[in-house]
Design a protein around this nucleic acid. Structure first.
Lengths: 337, 337
DNA sequence: ATGAAAGCGCTAACAT
DNA sequence: ATGTTAGCGCTTTCAT
């Protein structure tokens, strides 16, 4: 098990095959016109020496590194991961590698990473984050294209791919009304949180469009099960009359169904419940399992990567691109499983 | 907002500063002896042109890329992510960047990635995965050091950093006995799963060492809440007499506490429960919150990265390095919160 | 203190 | 069909 201390170079290969480096290059890349016999001999030599072309040296010519950078501005979390996976997926198919950088909510660190990526001559950059909010661009006039995924840039000239949370909210409300619910209440996260704002505003808006009154004012709290339980307590002690709850997250929804059950309300018969995120671990383990809105983050990551590839190939887009959310129906809104 | 289509080169900088490229290089890297005035002028020029050194060209000389590859053999999951974060953390501090590759359980894909990484001349490779199991090495006689993290290599000559699951199990059992429990039962995941085997074997072993009989044979099932609930049903209908449950995962533990509560058993008074993984989302939201074993995966990732850095700098290690697990106490084993 | 030039590994244009 | 050579961006002797 010899451990080659040095990577073989094309010169080594050429020498072993008894040809010039130019010929070796042509043989290995299938260029020029060579005798088949020569091609084979060179390839043989390359294999013997475990030759792997030096990508850095190669990109000195091509100007391309077939590498993209991925920066999470606030640290890597539950939402940025599927986005990253989707992007990695789309890029991998195009033979591109991904540089991962975790910004950790630190602007200094972030700028350092931008420099590092530029220094490494990535062909493009994807920026993502934990929360779907807009943020200042990571740089202006950068020499490579940038696509924001999940989070968006405040500069409308930048390209951002974001989930259509308002559309997702409409789907949730429409689903609840479709199964005959009219007294709907909304329980969600912190009032200052962008997603909580969008989802609650869209809820009120959609209810109004449908000619319905909310069964209670939206309840803002935390993105936690504990808050979901607590909110139900508030509603019940307040004597609210409701037959459905649309929750800002699956964790809240899980707290809600637990509290409702504990209070003797049947889900979905007495109260139907819809969550948000379609986080399998929560949605499937809840009793009953939760109907939820899926932001399709992996698809979003793929889309972002595809748009980045297009930009790299000279077809840039700009503006906010909305990715549709979809409804996943489970037992918390349907009597027959 | 001019968009520089081309990256500035050191030649551009030299020209603008009115010096030779050699001088420019020295000025930017603080080498050689130059007049301070010249240094300043060159740095000025570099800033004006937004010059970022071409890392690829540079590593042509140094032979180092200050980049490591990270391969997850089975796709990126809940366990590999903290490992990756820890590694990214430790490496970032050393100015190294990380290439992320998702093997997706596909050996072909995996080998392709190994080649890609070698071609990109990474200084080293970290291999990780979803499950703590040993696997065939990703290659033999590779020209760069490799460290396995969380998963381990079957080749004892390779360097692997893995959690001490047996030790963690002992801590769980010792904790339960310390609070006076003697009738302990173990509920865990699939019998064929490596971690389930290790944890259940260690449980039996530790109980024996303490002179205790298990309150029931270990129950193997799935890593899910549903299985936790079901297992409790089995125990109760079987009339088992137990005052503590050690679970193979927090998800199982959560199902267990829910089912116990539903059956009128008080946790921890009647039955104490310990989980495994210390997955905040599960452990903290459970009622009561779960005492759990934490594998400290981020620390494990950091350790792995540090060992890789050492290897890169000529101090390789080999063999399996065990990382300690620790006990996190919450209400499921303590009456006073 | 500064410049000129060689060379890192590779590709592509040009010779032979 | 194959070899030779220039040059990609940079660092590093070696001259000056």
């Amino acid at each position: 098990m010899a451990k080659p201390e040095r990577h073989a170079t094309i010169t080594d290969v050429a020498a072993l095959a008894g040809v010039s480096v130019g010929t070796a290059s042509k043989a290995l890349n299938g260029r020029g016109s060579l005798r088949e016999e020569t091609r084979v001999r060179v390839r043989e030599a390359a294999r013997t020496l475990k030759f792997e072309v030096n990508a850095g040296a190669r990109s000195l010519h091509s100007g391309r590194t077939y590498t993209v950078g991925m920066i999470t501005t606030d640290s890597i979390g539950r939402f940025s991961i599927p986005v990253m996976l989707g992007a990695e997926d789309a890029l991998g198919a195009g033979q591109m590698s991904v540089f991962l950088c975790d910004g950790r909510d630190d602007p200094i660190r972030e700028q350092y990473y931008v420099k590092t990526l530029l220094s490494r001559r990535v062909d493009g950059i994807i920026v993502t984050g934990r929360r779907a909010q807009s943020r200042a661009p990571i740089g202006v006039g950068l020499p490579v294209p940038v696509v924001y995924a999940f989070i968006s840039s405040t500069d409308p000239g930048d390209c951002s791919v974001v989930p259509d949370e308002a559309g997702g909210t409409r789907k949730a409300i429409d689903h609840l009304t479709a199964i005959g619910r009219t007294k709907i209440v909304h329980i969600t996260g912190p009032e200052h949180h962008h997603s909580a704002q969008v989802r609650s505003a869209s809820t009120q808006e959609r209810l109004a469009e449908l000619g319905l009154e909310p069964a209670a004012a939206p309840l803002f709290g935390a993105w936690s099960e504990a808050w979901g339980r607590q909110a139900v307590g508030i509603l019940l002690t307040g004597g609210a009359d409701f037959d459905a709850v649309f929750c800002g997250s699956d964790q809240i929804a899980r707290g809600v169904v637990d509290a409702l059950r504990a209070a003797g309300r049947r889900v979905p018969r007495d109260v139907a419940v819809v969550g948000f995120d379609n986080w399998d671990v929560m949605a499937e383990a809840a009793q009953p399992p939760l109907t939820s809105i899926d932001m399709n983050l992996e698809g979003l990551g793929r889309t972002a990567a595809d748009m980045l590839l297009a930009a790299i190939n000279g077809n840039p887009s700009s503006g906010r691109q909305l990715c549709p959310c979809h409804l996943v129906i489970r037992e918390s809104t349907s009597v027959t499983p």
